[in-house]
């Protein structure tokens, strides 16, 4: 009495074979995680950019370096990447300058190394989990394709018992199987877009940090001999 197929998405998923269902569940899990990281990374990157803007403004508005250093050191948890780089460099510079037998060039070198270390740590922090997005983007279509191939194999196997093969007999099975690919693509596309976008944003931020490091080194170099003795 019910030979009419109900092709709503729910029934398509429910009618799929166990393996295809597992594939779909896996893909939904991956998709969820990738969206989770997309949101977290976008918050983190937006935060890093706005803090960098804010600190750059403060720094170049000609404030006292010591005051800036104090506020950065006191507010560590809220500091942005650039602020931390500045703090690390300046702290090292002050420490080295206090020693008797160290000249300015050496002190600036030391400050630079400290800044580089902090810079790398900060960039690494920003870039963390981007690899997950990248592999989601590249792998989940294949996982979905695997589910689809499996489902289509089953659809055709069921056909072997039927004398006359019509499109209508295979169509539901194939539609079922294709849902797996659809879910894979739904997971992959945002992940790829987000990965590219984030990678680009992080590149730009790290370039800003790097150029800040160079500029700040110059400032230290200039100011060094005057205050050192």
């Amino acid at each position: 009495m019910n030979l009419s197929e109900d092709l709503s998405i729910i029934s398509l998923i429910m009618n799929a074979s166990l393996l295809v269902k597992l594939v779909m569940a896996l893909l939904i899990g991956i998709s969820f995680m990738s969206w989770y990281w997309i949101f977290r990374k976008s918050f983190a990157i937006r935060g890093a950019r706005s803090r960098t803007d804010k600190f750059e403004l403060e720094f170049w508005s000609g404030g006292d370096l010591n005051a800036l250093f104090q506020s950065a050191a006191n507010d560590r948890h809220n500091a942005g990447g650039m602020e931390r780089i500045f703090e690390a460099g300046y702290r090292e510079f002050i420490k080295l300058r206090g020693r008797q037998n160290i000249d300015t060039a050496t002190a600036v070198d030391g400050a630079r190394r400290a800044m580089r270390a902090t810079y790398q740590r900060e960039v690494d922090e920003l870039e963390s989990h981007l690899a997950f997005l990248a592999s989601t983007g590249s792998v989940s279509p294949y996982i979905g394709l695997f589910g689809t191939v499996w489902g289509i194999m089953n659809a055709f196997r069921g056909l072997s018992n039927v004398g006359q093969a019509t499109l209508a007999q295979v169509a539901p099975g194939i539609a079922e199987a294709l849902v797996a690919t659809a879910i894979g693509l739904f997971a992959a596309i945002p992940a790829v877009v987000a990965y590219n976008r984030f990678a680009h944003d992080i590149d730009r931020i790290s370039i800003r940090w790097e150029s800040f490091m160079e500029e700040f080194s110059n400032i230290l170099q200039r100011q060094g001999p005057g205050k050192a003795q």
Binding site: F39, R40, R76, H77
Partner: peptide
Amino acid sequence: HALKRPEPGKWQSAVLA
């Protein structure tokens, strides 16, 4: 402080996802 840094929008992201 590299380790202690706050993790912005953890729950927010989960809810949004």
